[in-house]
């Protein structure tokens, strides 16, 4: 019986029968739902979904706002990440230094603290009071540091030999970037960038602390109106998962695709 679930080929591409897939899926479902059903039954909690249902417009509004904030932040973080990735390779020392300092500070401190300092200290000093704009900026600078590292790793993964070959063929620096480096870097960074976007969507929930009316804040508000904590937060989990799961699948697909292509 156990043999059914163990792949005969144990290298890169294991294979199982359809029966094994179906049985495994049922098994996993039983285990996970079993744990949750048991845990919830111990809780003796009375779900009151009707109270929540009244606020469904609020959930949808918050969910859409999360998508909008994430999309804007994604685009902006790509520009920021690119700017500092170039900076990390720059021969102009101040540019190089600020890029490294930026990346280390952002990656080494909690987003929560960054949001508070950026909004209440830096934002107020520069009269940036629109919390949506501020939220997108903070999130973009946060994700930008990670994007920057992804791009840098992508550029470094292009072997020195290729740069040398381009040089020996007489390519200009511009043509080398345009025809040799960038096309390959773009392919290689797609999977980790998609993964970063998954994080970005979830990280946007922290903007609730500066009252950006995104998904999490709306769920919190519904909770405080109705005192139905689980009913407020379970849809929240599902809502984020609906956003992140397809991106996660896309990441896997891209990883497989480019693995064979390069």
């Amino acid at each position: 019986m156990a043999g059914l679930f163990i792949s005969q080929e144990h290298h890169e591409h294991p294979k199982w029968s359809n029966l094994a897939w179906v049985l495994s899926a049922i098994l996993v479902f039983i285990i996970i739902s079993g744990i949750f059903i048991f845990a919830f039954s111990q809780l003796q909690y009375h779900f009151n979904w009707s109270a929540i249902y009244k606020y469904k417009a609020k959930f949808i509004h918050g969910w859409l706002m999360t998508i909008i904030i994430s999309l804007f932040s994604l685009v902006l973080s790509l520009f920021i990440g690119f700017f500092f990735a170039v900076g990390q390779q720059s021969r102009f020392l101040p540019y190089r230094m600020i890029s490294k300092v930026y990346i280390e500070i952002i990656r080494g401190t909690p987003l929560l603290v960054q949001i508070l300092i950026f909004f209440y200290v830096i934002g107020s000093a520069f009269h940036l009071n629109n919390r949506y704009v501020a939220g997108i900026l903070i999130l973009s600078f946060f994700a930008g540091a990670y994007v920057s590292e992804i791009i840098r790793a992508g550029i470094e993964s292009i072997g020195k030999t290729q740069l040398e070959t381009a040089k020996s063929l007489g390519f200009t620096k511009r043509d080398t970037y345009r025809y040799i480096i960038i096309p390959q870097v773009l392919k290689r960074i797609m999977p980790p960038l998609a993964g970063q976007f998954v994080s970005l969507v979830k990280d946007s929930s922290l903007l609730s602390i500066i009252s950006v009316s995104e998904f999490t804040l709306n769920a919190q508000e519904v909770n405080s109106y109705t005192y139905s904590t689980l009913e407020s937060y379970i849809p929240l989990a599902i809502g984020y998962f609906i956003l992140t799961f397809p991106i996660s699948m896309l990441t896997r697909y891209l990883e497989r695709k480019f693995h064979y292509e390069t």
Binding site: Q162, E164, T165
Partner: peptide, 10 residues
């Protein structure tokens, strides 16, 4: 011509 061919892989 290089030892390790150095074709552009893409």
């Amino acid at each position: 011509v290089f030892q390790s061919y150095n074709l552009f892989p893409h």
